[in-house]
Amino acid sequence: MDLRPIKQSFSVEYNYQLHFAKGLFKLDNLLFLNIIKDYKDYEAVKLLFVVDKGVVGHHPELLSKISEYCSVNKNYLAHTQSLVLDGGEQSKNSAEYVDIVLKGINENAICRHSFVVAIGGGAIIDMVGYAAAIAHRGVKLIRIPTTVLSQNDSAVGVKNSINFFKKKNFLGTFAPPFAIINDSDFLKTLEQRDWISGIAEAIKVALIKDKHFFTYISDNALALRNREHEPMQYVIYKCAEMHMHHISQGGDPFESGSSRPLDFGHWAAHKLEYMTNYQLRHGEAVAKGIALDVTYAHQVGLISESDLDYILSVMTTIGFDLMLPLNSDVEINNLLAGIEEFREHLGGELTITLISDIGTKHDVHEIDLGLMTQAIEKLNHHFALKQ
């Protein structure tokens, strides 16, 4: 008997949408209702809400608004429970919060035709998405991000994760959400740090993909710092659009290869977050990582001194502190160890995205640790002189 290998291939089409809203749970706002009705309009759909405690603190009427909205539309929306959990990176640092969400899914009989609705910053949305993806091999997820960074970057992708073994995003899944809804009202109560830090992800995609977008960010740097609504909405929209286009058109939505241009600046950012016990916001760490990698790009001759100064000037005008919190050779070496950890996370060949011009990415497969050390020293010396 000839037992030849049986080979088969198949493709699966994924569709998801990013919506924009203001006052999502006001009774006259039909967006959320229509999203659920578009899925099923002949019976009520079960909904489990998981809400960031910090968001509830800034919007104390939110839970009652959700309950009232679902009650008024009870023929379509079956509100089971609203879990309120701590947000921030602590929600991702163990499986504790995942277990709470899984318990909520189980006890409320949330099935694959029900929805988990995550409301909060990028960390809690990451964690809730991971729980939703592993429950019943995947229950449907709606993301309602509440920070600049989550509205323009982390919540618009297809990744979900928690940190484990002291490594960023060690446990995770690729599972596209059913929908994402950006409600601009949530941005009004952000601390200044959180308002600014999310702009780092827009700077990231502009530097590697779109020179004109970086020019827009440059021209509006002070307006962004001063919390002007219109330029921030454009930055969020453009960044999210570019992010989603990369996922759908980049040829590797589930990152099976080694090149991940949207992780520009992230090898150092992930390590800096851990080294500072997550006292740095993710966007603040990304800004520092970008600053380091463009400095290194100059060190190896990829970009000019004037381009380097221009990029750093735009970032500091927005309000970023680009000093690296490294006070000894031991700390520098700890940061550099993040390069190998990044390669391990990607698997296969090391691929670090740099730039060869503003708007043009340039992948490299090795890092000169001596020159990277010089880049660290050059960057910190540059800003030490300005203090």
Rank of each mutant, 00 (worst) to 15 (best):
S259V: 14
K166L: 12
F186K: 06
K204I: 05
S218M: 08
D293I: 02
L190M: 14
V235I: 02
L292I: 13
E255S: 02
I162Y: 06
N163K: 13
L224R: 01
A240V: 01
A285I: 06
Q233N: 00
P261F: 10
A202G: 14
D185F: 15
I162F: 02
S256T: 12
V286I: 14
M275N: 04
I203P: 00
Q233S: 06
H282Q: 14
Y274R: 11
R281G: 14
H243K: 13
S154Y: 08
C239E: 06
D183R: 12
K188G: 11
F178W: 14
K211Q: 11
D210C: 07
N226L: 10
P177D: 11
A202M: 08
H246M: 13
K166S: 15
Q279S: 11
A297S: 14
L292R: 09
K159Q: 12
Q249I: 04
D263Y: 03
E230A: 11
I247N: 02
A202P: 04
V286C: 04
S256G: 13
I181A: 07
I208E: 07
T173W: 10
N277A: 14
W267Q: 00
F213L: 12
S161R: 10
A240Y: 03
H246V: 07
V205H: 07
S248D: 11
F213Y: 11
A269V: 06
G250Y: 04
N277P: 07
H243V: 09
Y274V: 15
T276I: 13
H243T: 04
R227K: 14
H282P: 09
P231Y: 02
N182P: 02
V205N: 05
I247M: 03
C239A: 08
I180F: 00
S184D: 14
E228Q: 12
Y237N: 04
H229P: 00
T295I: 10
Q233F: 03
A175I: 00
T276W: 12
I181T: 01
I180A: 07
M244W: 00
S154C: 13
G250N: 06
N169F: 02
R225W: 00
V156R: 05
A206P: 08
T295N: 09
F178H: 15
E241F: 02
H245F: 10
G172F: 11
P176V: 06
N163A: 13
I290W: 05
M244A: 03
L262H: 09
A297F: 02
L262W: 12
H282Y: 14
F164K: 01
F254G: 02
L272G: 05
A223I: 02
H266R: 07
K209L: 15
L224W: 06
F254L: 09
I247K: 06
D252Y: 04
Q192S: 11
V205P: 05
S197F: 09
L190N: 10
S259T: 13
P231Q: 01
H212K: 15
